[in-house]
């Protein structure tokens, strides 16, 4: 909300309350339901099914009621001709829901892999990006040049190409296959880890660019003052510049997270059965492309909106007067 808007609003208090009831709530409720379902699915299939010896991936809701209702609605629509179009649409939606109940358990597994892939990559990417950005801003000439070359190489080539190089052109897969534990139980198989490494290297370059811009926008007097009280340059960067830079970088960092959730779908090209990979596999078997890709679009949207909402909370939680944009 811009300042102009809030000052011209006759009753900002009322406005806020209306906003809370009609815009924030449905989103929160929707996301809460989504995550309750996702967590219930994971608990049932990954934990309870094993403990109780149940079948994995049994739908929570049977498809039959949706199908019978759809047939009833369709038979009602038939005599109405063109006027029955809304009923036909309703029947189609119900059939879609029936299909969804059947596919959702498998897609929940895909979500698990997508979430793991994204969280690992973005976190590991960050641990590389932070030193990389510090080197870009404060490093010596050669170190800066090296960091810049890395960043430009990664940003200048397609992510899919990087993924293929790591997967097909190096022996990384063989090496990872040999690591004890890989592909055993809950630990994903080697292709997943190749994807994590590839996305980490890629994300590090992008994140370091965001961080570099933020570090550079921290006023130079901050480091001077840090040096003046006897902190070394590195300590000054660590205790004074980086904490401010990270707050400034949060909005663009959120962007990177959102991108990575979607770009992680490229892992399906190297056999990782993440959300997109599973969808595509099922679609190839059932030919229900439209239904499945509409469904997967909704799931990606839920993931992305969840990530944005989470980062919004992080942002307001870490907001400090005078550092970055303080929201009204």
């Amino acid at each position: 909300m811009s300042t102009a808007e809030s000052t011209t609003s006759p009753n900002p208090g009322l406005r806020d309350r209306v906003g809370t009831v009609f815009t924030v709530r449905p989103l929160t409720v929707g996301l809460a339901l989504f995550w309750v379902w996702v967590l219930a699915r994971w608990t049932t299939d990954f934990v309870l099914a094993g403990v109780l010896g149940l079948d994995r991936g049994t739908p929570f809701v049977p498809a039959a009621p949706f199908l019978t209702t759809a047939d009833t609605v369709a038979s009602l629509a038939a005599p109405l001709g063109v006027a029955g179009a809304p009923l036909v649409w309703l029947a189609d939606t119900l059939r879609f829901a029936a299909d969804a109940t059947a596919y959702l358990p498998a897609l929940a597994h895909g979500i698990w892999t997508t979430v793991l892939l994204t969280v690992f990559s973005v976190c590991l990417g960050f641990t590389l990006a932070l030193p990389l950005s510090v080197v870009r801003v404060y490093g010596g000439r050669w170190a800066r040049w090296l960091a810049l070359s890395y960043t430009e190489l990664i940003r200048g080539t397609p992510l899919l190409a990087q993924l293929f190089v790591l997967y097909f052109a190096t022996s990384l897969t063989q090496v990872l296959r040999g690591v004890p534990g890989v592909g055993v139980g809950f630990v994903p198989a080697q292709a997943f880890w190749v994807a994590v490494i590839s996305f980490t290297l890629n994300s590090a370059a992008y994140q370091s660019e965001y961080l570099r811009a933020s570090l550079e926008s921290v006023d130079g007097g901050q480091l001077t003052a840090a040096r003046a009280i006897g902190l070394s340059k590195l300590e000054g960067i660590r205790y004074v510049v980086v904490p401010q830079g990270l707050r400034l970088a949060l909005p663009s960092w959120t962007n990177e997270l959102v991108y990575l959730i979607k770009y992680s779908s490229l892992a399906s090209f190297i056999t990782v059965q993440e959300l997109y990979g599973r969808t595509s596999t099922i679609a190839n078997e059932t030919y229900q492309y439209t239904e499945l890709f509409v469904l997967v679009a909704i799931l990606y949207l839920a993931l992305v909106v969840s990530a944005s909402a989470l980062m919004d909370r992080v942002e307001s939680h870490t907001a400090t007067a005078g550092v970055g944009h303080t929201r009204q």
Binding site: T224, A225, A226, Q244, R247, G322, V323
Partner: peptide
Amino acid sequence: VFQDFNLFAH
């Protein structure tokens, strides 16, 4: 003590 204060903003 600096002209522009240079207090640690965070």
